[in-house]
C-alpha cells in the first residue's frame, strides 16, 4: 500500500509566535525542584556569578516547557488516530537567564512516514526558535509527534 499523505501544506515554514515569556528566578527554581536538579548555578545568584554569569541561568532544557505557549494549528493530517509525543532535540545557543524575556517562533518543519516493526507511523516535526530581549537567538528546539494507525 502506498501511503498518500495529506495535510495542510500551507503550514510548512509558516511562523506561529508566542511571547514575551518572562523567565524568573522562581520559575527556574521550581523547574529545578521538579527535576531533582540541585546545582546552585541555577538557584543561587552568588554561585552563578562565581561561574561567570551575571545571575542564575536556566537548565538547558527549561525552554522546552515554553513550547506549549505557542498555539499551533491542527495540520489536518489524514492519517492515524492516536498521537503521541515522540521526541525533542534542543540546541542551546546562549544561556537563558533569570530576567530574560523570550519570544518563541514555531513552524511546521516536516511531515514524513516511517515504517517499522510496529507498522507505519507518521512523524510531525515542529521547529521553534527562542530569542531574548536583545534579539539574540538563545535556543533552537525541534519537537516531534507521531501519529499511529
Amino acid at each position: 500500500m502506498v501511503l498518500e499523505l495529506d495535510y495542510d501544506r500551507s503550514l510548512l515554514g509558516k511562523d506561529h509566535r508566542a511571547g514575551p515569556i518572562e523567565v524568573t528566578k522562581e520559575l527556574i527554581q521550581d523547574f529545578c525542584k521538579a527535576i531533582g536538579e540541585t546545582n546552585p548555578i541555577y538557584t543561587d545568584e552568588e554561585e552563578a556569578r562565581k561561574a561567570g554569569y551575571p545571575t542564575v541561568i536556566a537548565p538547558p532544557t527549561l525552554c522546552t516547557i515554553f513550547l506549549r505557549r505557542v498555539i499551533i494549528p491542527d495540520i489536518r493530517l489524514n492519517f492515524g488516530k492516536a498521537r503521541f509525543h515522540a521526541g525533542q532535540v534542543v540546541e542551546p545557543i546562549a544561556p537563558i537567564m533569570a530576567g530574560d524575556s523570550l519570544m518563541a517562533s514555531s513552524y511546521l518543519k516536516e511531515v514524513y512516514p516511517k515504517t517499522g516493526r510496529s507498522g507505519t507511523m507518521v512523524f510531525i516535526v515542529w521547529a521553534t526558535t527562542f530569542t531574548n530581549q536583545r534579539g539574540e537567538t538563545v535556543a533552537e528546539v525541534q519537537e516531534s509527534y507521531a501519529a499511529r494507525e
Binding site: 523547574f31 527535576i35 531533582g36 536538579e37 546545582n39 548555578i41 561561574a51 537548565p59 538547558p60 532544557t61 522546552t64 521526541g87 525533542q88 532535540v89 534542543v90 540546541e91 542551546p92 525541534q142
Partner: peptide
C-alpha cells in the same frame, strides 16, 4: 528529557557546553 540532560550537565561541568541534545 530533563532527567537525561542532568547526567550530561553534571558530567561536562561548569566549563563544558551542550551543543545539541535530543531524545
Amino acid at each position: 528529557l530533563a532527567f537525561m540532560t542532568h547526567v550530561v550537565t553534571d558530567w561536562i561541568g561548569l566549563e563544558g557546553r551542550i551543543k545539541k541534545l535530543g531524545g
